[in-house]
Amino acid sequence: MSLVSAEVTQQITSNGFWAQEDAAVGKRVDDIVNQGFQFKTEQGLELCKVTALDDPRIRPVIEFFLPRSVLGFYKAYGRTRQVHCILNRLTPELQILVVQIWSSGSEVIFYPGSHTHLLNAVGAQNGLLAIPPDRLNLPGINAKSVEMPNGGFAIVDARLAFRPLGGKVVMFGFMTPSEVIYWAKMGLPGTLEQKVRDEMESQTIGMNFKFQRSEGDGADDGPSLHRQA
């Protein structure tokens, strides 16, 4: 806990996010983008491990807000014309913390304060939730543009409104054990189970994967991030 600065926790609590440019992260995202977003591979799992689970700037923040969590989703998105969030405000407490890693040439608009409001978001075609424009005029909501020409990362309250304007973003959703029961398990080949068990899963962070033993036996996590309730 001592590794987490008060400034970072205050920004996430008050604004709903904390972002930082990082060329090394941007290059890792660029590499997997150039290879066609192949996440259900050892390289895909390594991306999550290196940029979230093993990063001393990120993992302590996850464990600060969520002393026990589960990696509930792992998805990639590009630019969009809509403003999105991942979770409607269901409780006053934070339920999901999202690590966003951004490619080079990225730009995103975050809406500080939006995580404190009920935004009435509905399902969008890209699998995220889309927020009605009028909800962004609620008191205390502002727009902040963040440019990451070399790539970088953000740690985001899942209830926060955001709009990707450029680049690609990969998102890892860490959620409370009570929340993960509403999310479909992510399918992975059985050959990757050992890596998940030995290198990713821990006493503080679990994994919401289902391992495919034979053809047609894997869970299909599909394109959507919609909560299953």
Rank of each mutant, 00 (worst) to 15 (best):
S202Q: 05
E42Q: 15
F211P: 01
E193I: 04
T51A: 09
T41N: 10
S145V: 15
R163C: 09
L3A: 13
L160G: 00
G151T: 01
F65D: 02
V83K: 02
L165K: 13
I32F: 03
L138W: 08
N150G: 11
T176E: 06
N126D: 14
Y77N: 01
P177L: 12
S202G: 12
I141Y: 03
F172K: 08
Q38C: 11
S114I: 10
I12D: 01
R57S: 10
V29E: 02
R135D: 09
M207G: 09
S178T: 15
V98R: 01
G152K: 00
P189F: 09
Q82S: 15
S214G: 13
T91D: 13
F37N: 13
E201K: 12
E93W: 07
R213Q: 12
L192S: 02
D157S: 03
R89D: 03
F17Q: 00
G140R: 06
F211T: 09
T80F: 03
M186N: 04
A158Y: 01
Q95L: 05
E63R: 12
I141T: 10
D217R: 04
Q11Y: 09
K49W: 13
K210G: 06
Q125S: 15
A24H: 10
V8F: 01
S14L: 13
Q212E: 14
I101A: 06
S104V: 07
S224E: 07
N150S: 10
T41G: 06
G173V: 00
K195I: 10
E46C: 09
L118R: 15
Q125W: 14
I58Q: 04
Q194R: 14
R197S: 13
P189A: 11
P112Q: 08
I96R: 00
Q203G: 15
Q203P: 04
M148T: 01
R197G: 05
Q194P: 09
R68V: 14
F39G: 03
L192Q: 03
F174I: 05
E193G: 08
A23M: 08
T91S: 11
I141M: 05
I86L: 12
K168I: 13
E42G: 10
G218T: 02
R135W: 06
A184W: 07
K195W: 12
Q35I: 06
V169R: 02
H117D: 09
K185N: 10
S106A: 15
A52C: 15
N15V: 06
T51P: 04
Y77R: 07
V122Y: 15
E46W: 08
E63V: 08
R163I: 07
P112N: 08
Q100H: 15
K27W: 07
V33A: 07
F37I: 12
Y182Q: 12
P164D: 10
A121S: 12
I96M: 08
M171T: 12
D22W: 06
F162Q: 04
M200Q: 09
Q35D: 13
L138N: 09
Q100W: 14
L90S: 04
M175S: 03
I101Y: 05
S214T: 11
R213A: 13
S114E: 07
